[in-house]
């Protein structure tokens, strides 16, 4: 079989470009570059109600995304929702009295965890637990309360 050098070169080029594209997808399109196990740390917070929060929901401080939710579990004794979050290690200056709240982006948007830094010197480290939390606002509850109140005032 005479296989030409040109053909081999083109095949080589094709394979190289194809693998480069796979690499591009992993690094540039997805979050592989921003998330690897080594440069992040994990904190958790207990909420009365974690609402529509999901795994992979963003964790933000002042609107900047610093991490994401990696697990949501139920504490069977207090019946609280334990939300575990992975925070990028470059954001390692969060004070220990940081508060965590669950907000909704827009009226119907995705829910996310917002961290509000406090003023203490001590910092949150790996496996720290945030004590002060504010649960998700569930729309039905608010509407229910509103209707109840307006009914009360009428009487």
């Amino acid at each position: 079989m005479q296989h030409s050098i040109k053909q081999d070169t083109l095949v080589g080029l094709f394979i190289a470009v194809g693998i480069a594209a796979l690499f591009f997808m992993a690094m540039q399109i997805s979050n592989l570059s921003t998330f690897t196990k080594e440069d992040s740390y994990t904190i958790s917070a207990a909420f009365e109600n974690s609402g529509g929060l999901k795994i992979k929901s963003p964790v933000v401080v002042g609107g900047v995304r610093i991490g994401r939710v990696i697990a949501i579990t139920l504490d069977q004794t207090k019946f609280q929702s334990i939300v575990t979050m992975k925070i990028e290690s470059q954001y390692n200056k969060l004070p220990e009295d940081t508060t965590a709240s669950i907000f909704t982006a827009g009226l119907l948007g995705e829910q996310y965890v917002s961290l509000d830094p406090g003023g203490l010197e001590d910092l949150l480290i790996n496996n720290s637990v945030i004590d002060i939390t504010q649960s998700a606002i569930v729309l039905e509850e608010i509407i229910g309360q509103f209707l109840f109140k307006s009914a009360e005032t009428k009487e």
Binding site: M25, A26, Q28, I29, S30, N31, K56, P58, R65
Partner: peptide, 10 residues
């Protein structure tokens, strides 16, 4: 990058 996951999507 924030919304696409290496495993789930790529």
């Amino acid at each position: 990058q924030a919304s696409l996951d290496v495993y789930d999507d790529i």
